[in-house]
Design a protein around this nucleic acid. Structure first.
Lengths: 144, 144
DNA sequence: TTTAAATAGGATAATAATATCTTAATATCT
DNA sequence: AGATATTAAGATATTATTATCCTATTTAAA
């Protein structure tokens, strides 16, 4: 389960990637309008991701955010881990400390399978995949 | 990803189920010591679950909590939904509102599979399964 | 060179989740 | 009946998450 912040981040990154592919630099006002999120908050989130090198930012008039073709190869998993950490992909399904391969809880093995399936989905999905024509339905990135 | 409250709830319910199977009524002090959680907080949580019928409580001296054999058939999924709601088992993996079978995001189908796999694991696992001998290693329910 | 429009960054505010306090009600033992 | 130990319930406190504010810095156009 992703945090709200993390969902904003993913949707913003997808939107920026879509616009960047068209050669457009986008500012936080436009991003927040299109993904339906608080403007200044998405600013903060992208500021952080940009410091970590997930996208480029430029200040000043006509500045904004941009994702290069190379950066569009970033997986959703990497963005998720940058924001929420990896707790979603680790740990026992019942929150038991002493659960392990050697001392497994009743759902240990199945849970491990489901969890790594989840991780693999996010890991093999990159931003590029959201920039394909059929994905760009209007309002698609808005929350509700 | 379960909330902290929900993990406490699952571990407490498992502990109570284990003790109930031995015919023991347990109080919140004992529960919190054994699952390593704040005593009064676990009281609040069990109070809520008891109002919803997941377990029995008795007031007064030698009172405490108890899970009948029938109630021990409760699935983890039902407890999770009672505490955290079903958001974990619903919704798009990227937080997109307009994602659906008809208008799927790039991970829609795979994500759906992983998510329902997760649900099925929790749904088919009941408290009883934690009361079997081999599961009751000492401190097993403590968090760390 | 001035003005406008953008992000950066630090501080603060609002909200939600987690945890505790206090008193009341209840049950059991002596 | 009185003392004690327990949960119930409502109020309050603390902490983490989400959101906003304000000022500084940067860039480009006029």
């Amino acid at each position: 389960m992703l945090s709200k912040t993390c969902e904003y981040a993913l949707r913003a990154m997808i939107y920026v990637a879509q616009q960047s592919r068209k050669g457009k630099v986008v500012n936080i006002k436009e991003i927040s309008e299109n993904i339906d999120s608080p403007e200044l908050f998405i600013g903060k989130i992208l500021q952080g991701l940009s410091k970590q090198g997930f996208l480029k930012s430029s200040k000043g008039r006509y500045g904004g955010f941009f994702i290069s073709e190379k950066d569009a190869e970033t997986s959703l998993a990497d963005i998720i881990i940058a924001i929420d950490g990896d707790k979603m992909f680790k740990g026992c399904g019942v929150g038991l400390a002493y659960c392990s391969d050697i001392n497994p809880c009743p759902i240990h093995n199945e849970y491990k399978t489901a969890r790594s399936l989840m991780y693999n989905i996010y890991k093999k999905t990159t931003l590029i995949q959201f920039t394909e024509k059929k994905q760009e339905t209007k309002f698609f990135l808005k929350r509700e």
